[in-house]
Amino acid sequence: MEQITKNSTKIKKGTSYTLRTALIYIFLIIGLIIILFPFYITIITAFKTTSESAANFFAFPKSFYLDNFKAVLQKANYFTYFFNSVAITVVAVVFILLLTTMCAYAISRNMNHSKYHKAIYYYLLFGIFVPFQAVMVPLVKYTGDLRLNNQTGLVLLHITFAASQAIFLLVNYIRSVPSDLESAALIDGCTIQGAYWRIVLPLIRPMLMTILVLNAMWIWNDFLMSLLILNKSPNTWTIPLFQYNFKSQYTFDYNMAFASYLVAMVPIMIIYAFVQRYIVSGLTQGAVKS
């Protein structure tokens, strides 16, 4: 960063440079306002009463009115949905990391000499081209028949529909990692399972981070799949589903609606504040490598 600015000052000094920098900052600040404006409205409206909002929608609340939150958190069982979301995300992500790395490891080390592994690689890649909406309708009936229209079923679906992309990213990554270390370990009497667990997994940690970030964000925020599988049993809802249904229930009380948007956003914002660096590096890692 510093180098860039230094160099460009070297290249072109003077007023045109200062002016350009000023314009860049003005542009970025306008963008910042556009991004932050919905948050501002959400926060102030959530803390106001309906009459206060009616008087002036944009003004800061005079006092912090908390009944909207009480209604959302207690009446609407927010904490149940929060724990549902946490459980589904954690379980699904753990299984995705474990199962797709096992599969990708086997594929990348065998696809050159094993027809089976080569075939399943292309079989799994095929899924990248198929949108979820193309299979969702039969899937609803099918999961119903198998009695999997519940959270277990949803986790299995998340694993299934994460597989293609994860395998694609992982196979490319593992193939770029030399297999010498594993071969040495195998000759020394290590089992394949041991080599996978102790040698391969630590070596591919950057890509694991990418897959973790991509899928955790995707699953935490997923709406369509949860809508199809869980919508009929309210005690299994996730936060996005609660959001959607809460909104249709309280269409007219928009202060309460904004309070619900705020409580839906808070958990992920807190996590973001702490692990932001890992989220961003996880995302870029995957892009640069693939």
């Binding site: 797709t100 096992m102 086997a106 080390r109 592994h117 399943i120 694993i159 529909f161 597989a163 394949i192």
Partner: peptide, 15 residues
């Protein structure tokens, strides 16, 4: 090495 691929392949085929 075949066993490692099975969980994903089975889930993917089924769902």
């Amino acid at each position: 090495m075949v066993g490692f691929t099975l969980p994903v392949v089975i889930l993917y085929s089924l769902f």
